[in-house]
């Protein structure tokens, strides 16, 4: 917590070098957001307030200094709740979760099962050709990386909190944000790693 604060202040000072006089201060920006947005459904107003990570990534243009990134990635790692036992769920359920783009939006029903939007950004199974390209292809992921306990742990962690491995990743922190449940993340681990999954066929 303490390191976060000092680093934030340091970066804020660096970013305060005036580019033009009209640039709003952080306080002004937050004030505008709190005045000009309203809560709707599950999208509550606390979401306009940046947490430390979002703030650092914004201030540094997603290029934080290496030592800052390392310290904050360690903070993010501590948010991950790794379940004990096997991390492999069922790839078939994982495929449905990967397909669904629902979840955490103001028009999504609170409490209804969410998806991971994986196909929005990644290629996964060869059968699904309507996939995004915002992120690297995960085709053949298990074939390439194996599926032992360490890889399972990595994939579980990456889905739970992508920022623990890459601070300013564009990938959402799907477990940390409360979008996906433990079982859903396990099912996605299986989608990526199970030899029977279409991802590895």
């Amino acid at each position: 917590m303490h390191t976060t604060l000092t680093i934030t202040l340091g970066l804020a000072a660096a970013a305060a070098t005036p580019l033009t006089c009209a640039e709003p201060s952080d306080q002004q920006t937050l004030g505008v957001l709190q005045r000009d947005f309203h809560a709707r459904g599950q999208a509550t107003m606390d979401r306009v307030v940046q947490d430390g990570l979002q703030r650092i990534c914004t201030l540094s243009g997603d290029q934080p200094p290496a030592e800052v990134a390392k310290a904050l990635e360690a903070d993010q790692m501590r948010t991950i709740v790794f379940p004990s036992g096997s991390l492999m769920g069922e790839w078939k359920r994982g495929e449905a979760i990967a397909q669904s783009g629902r979840g955490s939006m103001w028009n999504d029903q609170t409490g209804a099962a969410a998806g991971g939007s994986c196909y929005n950004c990644h290629q996964l199974s060869p059968q699904e050709q309507s996939h995004g390209t915002l992120a690297p292809s995960l085709l053949g992921f298990g074939n390439k990386r194996g599926n032992g306990p360490q890889v399972q742990q990595y994939v579980y962690g990456k889905i739970y909190n992508a920022k623990a491995y890459n601070l300013c990743s564009q990938m959402p922190r799907l477990g940390h944000a409360g979008t996906l449940t433990e079982q859903q993340i396990k099912d996605l681990v299986a989608l990526l790693l199970d030899p029977a999954s279409p991802v590895n066929k």
Binding site: Q54, N120, P172
Partner: peptide, 30 residues
């Protein structure tokens, strides 16, 4: 200036800014 700041402002449940999806050439969502 406010618009530019908001464009790059990462926030919300999924940590997005506008630039998350509109910041790099040749990308797609689906």
């Amino acid at each position: 200036e406010l618009g530019r700041t908001l464009f790059f402002y990462r926030a919300g449940a999924w940590d997005f800014s506008c630039a998350s999806c509109h910041g790099e050439e040749g990308k797609r969502i689906r």
